[in-house]
Design a protein around this nucleic acid. Structure first.
Length: 654
RNA sequence: GCACCCGUAGCUCAGUUGGAUAGAGCGUCGGACUACGAAUCCGAAGGUCGCAGGUUCAAGUCCUGCCGGGUGCACCA
């Protein structure tokens, strides 16, 4: 409802300026004053106006006087209590507090469905090892974006790209065949979390290569057998990668993350996606065959800007190697063209997983689609790919290729959602028992490395969080059953982890610290969850005590206003709750869930202060008590909604 | 060498398309549980927003240069 009011005021301001100064204004900035006493909405329009008028007439104008003039022209509105000019020329608007409170009691109207389908790709961990917390940052970020986009009215299709024919899978195959000398049956007999087993094996293979460089030939040979398909090595790779994938999906399922489709690189290869994309690229003149230089025999793509600036000849990206094989960026171009329906070919599909909540995740296959009717995948209105910022350079080639081949605005709305990695502090490494070189000990951060087996495994961290949360729950609720306590501990652990990974903006490299990640106090998920739990318990107590509610109505507006106008702190809390949509919208627009996470924390903080300084249930004045309850209700609902958009559940008790 | 990201309190980080007196958490010190659950709250100390110029009514925010850190510039992904 706040959005509508804001738009309404902006419209009036635009008319005022048009009428009074004969100026057409496109964008009118809306701000929120730094303090309640200054008002609820601020318009710095007089500053801009003074500038425009000076440019037009050459005369100087006083912003304050201009603001006064506009204020005088603004027609009265029911939702607005008064308008003031403040500071050097701010036009400040004070809302009618009681009307906003009553308005918030109505359920929030959902944004209009836009009918667009946005394809979000995230997680995309190589299927050769367990996920570490860096991978979780990707998954949690992607999942929050999915939730935000759905909230904004879009249809979202969630992809987790599976690079099942790459070097990393080949490395683990090499490890099983040549290092461990295990046959298929022995590998299948390995018990427990297979991805954890591969985590160690992968690190051992990397170390082995370093000592025996000739073994790299085994990797090359294995990789080409996997790419070719239809041989025992490829079948082994298929078994390994699919088993690891299942384990990875178990891990993210613990956080409540699901996918619609798992597009596999093997199908991109075998279903001739690349061949089609290659034809298009050649026809558009985007790739050139190099006849000399270091890239002799390769097909190379150059960025348009490099051509304009006459960059050095050796720049550009090899898409096809001299042996005819395709690099990842090439396959990624094909995949992204398919996402927008530009390729003219399609995958076949089969159901891969059915979850207890009824969700089905599909996977691509080369066989004709057999069981079940898959939904229509691809043909998106835009795509968003959550990929680490270290790949920004390569993603530029993907974007440029798609831009050149898909001549419509969908490409401009598609984007690489870049985020910085999660690194370990030297202290965290020591806690993990990882040995560091002297120069590494000097550094502030140590990058995680799957190759080195250096990192915090996602499952291990979740285990630790659940264990710690369980201890806290048992201490507070000894009466709970084992199952009940575990469920609460799980919700709290997920809340802590998701919030921890989302509170940092995407451009911040997270320095992972166990103490901070395992904290349930201060700026954490559990802090916000606790605020909602407290709020809800008030309503439970209310019912238990058999107390009745006296719903507020329009006839009480003057009385409510008399009370709220004397309590700026209550109003500040209520107003912040009302601004949920504004923050969610911003988070969605900037692909930055941290904006919403910060909001949720701030709202929880203000609620806790309120909870502490006002006693709701024992309030004697029925109207005042009802106002307290209405505020609590409004805050509680917005907090829970914000958490939901971040993928965090609210426990029944804490 | 070139490109991108970062530099804000002791530590970890926010700071919306430039807007009013730069904020939060952690840590430190001192307080608050016989009232809706203390995973909470209140108070205190803590700042040359890396440095130097520039743009303007207004700069932590935009531009230029420098310093410091990270990442990329593969016929790896």
């Amino acid at each position: 409802m706040l959005e509508r009011l804001r738009e309404h005021i902006v419209r009036h301001l635009r008319q005022c300026v048009q009428r009074r100064f004969d100026l057409t204004v496109e964008e009118i900035a809306i701000e929120v004053p730094p303090h309640v006493e200054l008002g609820d909405l601020a318009f710095p329009i007089a500053f801009q106006l003074a500038q425009w008028l000076r440019q037009r007439t050459g005369q100087k104008y006083n912003p304050r006087a201009l603001a006064e003039a506009i204020a005088a022209e603004l027609p009265p509105m029911q939702e607005i209590a008064r308008v003031e000019v403040a500071g050097a020329g701010y036009l400040n608007v004070f809302l009618d507090r009681a009307r906003l409170l009553l308005g918030l009691q109505q359920p929030e109207t959902a944004p209009e469905p836009s009918g667009e389908k946005i394809i979000v790709e995230h997680t995309s961990i190589n299927p050769n090892k367990a996920a570490h917390i860096g991978h979780l940052r990707n998954a949690v970020l992607g999942d929050a974006l999915v939730r935000l986009l759905r909230w904004s009215g879009a249809r979202v299709e969630v992809h987790n790209y599976i690079d099942n024919t790459g070097v990393q899978v080949a490395d683990v195959v090499v490890g099983f065949k040549y290092l461990e000398k295990k046959d298929r049956a022995e590998i299948e007999a390995i018990p427990g979390k297979f991805d954890h087993y591969c985590w160690d094996l992968y690190a051992r293979v990397t170390a082995w290569y370093e000592e025996n460089p000739e073994a790299l030939e085994l990797r090359r040979q294995t990789l080409s057998e996997i790419e070719e398909g239809g041989n025992p090595t490829a079948e082994l790779a298929e078994y390994i990668s699919m088993r690891v994938l299942n384990d990875q999906l178990d891990t993210v399922e613990r956080l409540g993350i699901y996918y619609d489709l798992l597009p596999r690189e093997s199908e991109i290869l075998h279903l001739k996606f690349w061949d089609r994309a290659f034809e298009l690229l050649k026809a558009a003149g985007l790739v050139t065959y190099e006849t000399e230089g270091k890239n002799r025999g390769c097909w190379v793509m150059r960025l348009p800007s490099e051509e304009e600036t006459g960059a050095r000849e050796d720049e550009g990206k090899v898409l096809v190697r001299s042996d005819g094989t395709v690099v990842y960026t090439g396959k990624d171009i094909a995949y992204h063209l398919w996402k927008l329906g530009r390729l003219g070919v399609d995958f076949s599909y089969r159901p891969f997983r059915r979850y207890p909540n009824g969700h089905t995740t599909w996977i691509t296959t080369s066989e004709a689609t057999a069981d079940g009717a898959p939904p229509e995948f691809g043909r998106g209105s835009a795509y968003l790919s959550v990929i680490g910022s270290e790949q920004t350079y390569l993603q530029r080639f993907v974007k440029e290729a798609v831009r050149a081949l898909v001549p419509d605005p969908r490409v401009e709305r598609s984007a690489h959602i870049a985020y910085e990695k999660v690194a370990l502090t030297p202290r965290a490494c020591l806690e993990l028992g990882i040995e560091l070189s002297p120069e590494e000990l000097e550094r502030q951060q140590i990058s995680m490395s799957g190759r080195r087996g250096l990192g915090v495994k996602a499952d291990d961290l979740i285990d630790k969080l659940e264990e710690k949360a369980l201890g806290e729950v048992r201490a507070r609720h000894p009466e709970l059953s084992e199952e009940g306590a575990r469920r609460l501990a799980h919700q709290i652990a997920v809340g802590a982890l998701r919030y921890f990974l989302l509170k940092y903006t995407r451009t911040t490299a997270i320095a992972f610290d166990f103490t901070e990640a395992l904290s349930f106090e201060g700026e954490t998920g559990p802090y916000v969850q606790y605020a909602v739990v407290r709020a809800r318990s008030i309503f439970r107590k209310l019912q238990e005590a058999g107390l009745s509610r006296h719903p507020l109505g329009p006839e009480q507006i003057p009385e409510i206003n008399r009370f709220l106008n004397e309590h700026d702190d209550l109003w500040a809390l209520l107003y912040l709750a009302a601004r949920l949509g504004e923050f969610a919208h911003q988070a969605c627009e900037h692909y930055e869930p941290a904006i919403l996470a910060k909001y949720a924390f701030q709202l929880a903080q203000r609620f806790n202060t309120f909870y502490h300084s006002y006693h709701i249930l024992s309030e004697g004045d029925p109207l005042v008590r009802e106002v307290y309850l209405a505020i609590t209700e409004a805050v509680c609902e917005r907090l829970a909604r914000a958490l939901e958009l971040l993928g965090i559940e609210v426990p029944e008790m804490m």
